[in-house]
């Protein structure tokens, strides 16, 4: 009998610790991989053009605010447009999509599945396939380069997402809860506002954040349907690219300014988001 031998329980615990430690390391590694482009972009934003394009890459340098200075002029109007378009379209998509998702989830008819698939089918077509008719429609309705036009566009873009995601969250709520409410004399409206809404809050915030990000990042429709008055941040970034000379530093500064609001918002909403995204994951 040797004193150095370890009991199976201790060994198992050690194995567990090693595995945990490895898992933590892996998590950091993955995070680093994901954060690297973002960090590199922010770093490039403070370089001169020559430094941003240099090989081998420059890591130590005297930061400059020149790029931000150049980007700042057009930033605020574009930021306002992006905020209005993203928030407005998300709100509108929820006003229209949430009741639809509720009806499809809680009171499904024979054709509910068909309706859902049809909604998703609007996403099958590449945007470029519909841009000409859309452009003509917008031109005739005088919606080109207007914020209502952009809000309308993003609402239709995000509506299928809202209906589909909210539908899956709402079907998670056990039917028994609605039945209990009905026994207590609740109307359909009350079921929606007092049961479905509060219970699907994490789902709503996750969906809203996704819809916001999609609208925020959208560039194709923005590029074609707006020009100056309603141009959002995604179009604003584009103007820093040039086919002559170097542009990575100024492009990085513009991109950093564009990402910043979403980053802050995502950080604040982190908790809700994680709850929302893992909601119903263990089924």
């Amino acid at each position: 009998m040797t004193t150095t031998s370890t009991s199976p329980a201790v060994r198992a615990r050690r194995g567990f610790h090693t595995r945990r430690w490895l898992l933590t390391l892996l998590t950091y590694l993955i995070t680093a991989v994901f954060l690297f482009p973002l960090a590199w972009m922010i770093l490039a934003a403070f370089k001169t053009e020559a430094q941003a394009f240099a090989t081998p890459p420059v890591v130590l340098f005297t930061p400059t605010l020149d790029n931000f200075h150049r980007a700042w002029g057009a930033y605020l109007p574009a930021l306002t447009n992006s905020l209005v378009a993203a928030l407005g379209s998300t709100l509108l998509a929820f006003v229209l999509g949430l009741p639809a998702a509720f009806a499809l989830a809680v009171y499904p008819t024979r054709r509910a599945q068909g309706v859902l698939t049809w909604m998703l089918s609007t996403k099958f077509m590449p945007a470029v396939g519909v841009i000409v008719p859309l452009f003509l429609l917008f031109r005739n309705l005088h919606l080109l380069d207007t914020l209502p036009g952009l809000i309308l566009m993003y609402t239709t873009m995000n509506l299928p997402l809202v209906v589909w995601m909210m539908h899956s969250y709402l079907t998670e709520i056990p039917a028994a809860i609605y039945e209990a409410a009905k026994v207590d004399g609740a109307s359909v409206g009350q079921e929606f506002f007092r049961i479905a809404l509060p219970l699907s809050m994490p789902g709503i915030s996750a969906t809203a954040l996704l819809a916001l990000i999609f609208a925020w990042n959208e560039v194709f429709f923005a590029l074609n349907l707006t020009s100056s008055a309603a141009a959002p941040l995604s179009v604003f970034i584009g103007q820093f690219k040039t086919s002559q000379g170097l542009f990575w530093a100024q492009l990085s500064a513009a991109a950093t300014l564009t990402v910043l609001p979403v980053l802050v918002f995502g950080w604040i909403a982190q908790r809700q988001l994680i709850r929302g995204l893992s909601f119903g994951a263990v089924k």
């Binding site: 590029l223 020009s227 100056s228 141009a231 179009v235 584009g238 103007q239 690219k241 040039t242 086919s243």
Partner: peptide, 8 residues
């Protein structure tokens, strides 16, 4: 002004 990359 409306400034965009060449192809866009």
């Amino acid at each position: 002004w409306v400034v965009l990359p060449e192809n866009e």
